[in-house]
């Protein structure tokens, strides 16, 4: 099998801070490979380790030093090839443009038997790029996988959706999106990390793929907060008193 894994450089939103006027301080926010993307990469590496795939191509849209870094991480986890799409400002591209770039790359360099993506990025979490890629390639979509099983040319996933648990199965080729619960991504050995540093990263431009870039027409981004009262009730010593205080407050709110 030949597997493609698309990974995104995401902001670590747990560390995102804001200016007083509500502007997010994105430059100061650390960036990492998306958590679910890491699980997608791990899934591909396991398929390769099991002898079911010979090639695992890692792809990311963007070619900055940080994009190169997550592709090196993909190498250290087991990718056999890494490709960066040369775009200056990938974060401003629409989800559909990103999906079109990925699909065009697949058409140009494929066929692939399995396309793996994280089910959602840690920062934007739109979860639509994988489904878009599936439609653009006219391939079946197996989305939101908490577990993935590959048997010859058959893929089965388990997906937890709003009303219960689904087992979706399809023949390859298929697009599979993986949640951050799908597996525990490996921590590469020092040897793998050192090796990954020497491996080449191919670069390809959207023009080479015949894709026109469409940017999001962003007006502004601001901190968003639901106003909360943030009343602290100390129950470290006197639990009784604290609980009385809480019940009284909730009665006054009219919610109990």
């Amino acid at each position: 099998m030949k597997v493609l894994v698309a990974v995104k450089l995401t902001y670590d939103i747990n560390q995102l801070k804001f200016e007083k006027d509500g502007t997010p301080l994105l430059d100061a926010c650390p960036r990492v490979m998306g958590e679910a993307d890491k699980c997608a990469m791990e899934e591909a590496a396991r398929i390769k380790d099991a002898g079911k795939a010979e090639e695992v191509v890692a792809l990311t849209v963007g070619s900055s030093k940080e994009h190169q870094r997550i592709l090196k991480d993909a190498y250290a986890m087991g990718a056999t090839k890494a490709v960066a799409i040369k775009v200056n400002d990938p974060d401003n591209l629409s989800a559909l443009t990103i999906a079109t770039i990925i699909a065009s790359f697949i058409k140009k360099t494929g066929p692939y038997d399995m396309i793996l993506l994280g089910s959602g990025a840690g920062d934007t979490h739109s979860s639509v790029v994988g489904p878009m890629v599936a439609s653009l390639l006219n391939m079946p979509l197996l989305a939101n996988a908490d577990r993935v099983k590959v048997e010859e040319d058959d893929i089965t996933i388990v997906s937890t959706l709003e009303d219960g648990q689904y087992k979706f199965r399809s023949r390859t080729p298929a697009v599979v999106t993986v949640t951050s619960e799908a597996n525990e991504p490996r921590i590469p050995t020092i040897r793998d990390i050192l090796r990954s540093k020497k491996k080449p990263i191919d670069e390809i431009s959207p023009e080479d793929l015949g894709v026109e870039l469409s940017k999001v027409d962003l007006v502004d981004v601001k901190r968003y907060e639901v106003p909360r009262k943030r009343v602290k009730i100390d129950a470290t010593d006197n639990v009784e008193e604290a609980v009385d205080q809480l019940i009284k407050a909730l009665e006054q709110e009219g919610v109990i």
Binding site: S94, G120, V128, M132
Partner: peptide, 23 residues
């Protein structure tokens, strides 16, 4: 904006070419 909603929205976007915004 549920898991199913996002899934179908993304698939439909790929079929129609419509721009898509979640959340």
């Amino acid at each position: 904006c549920t898991n199913k909603g996002r899934m179908i929205a993304g698939l439909l976007a790929g079929l129609t070419g419509y721009d898509t915004v979640t959340d």
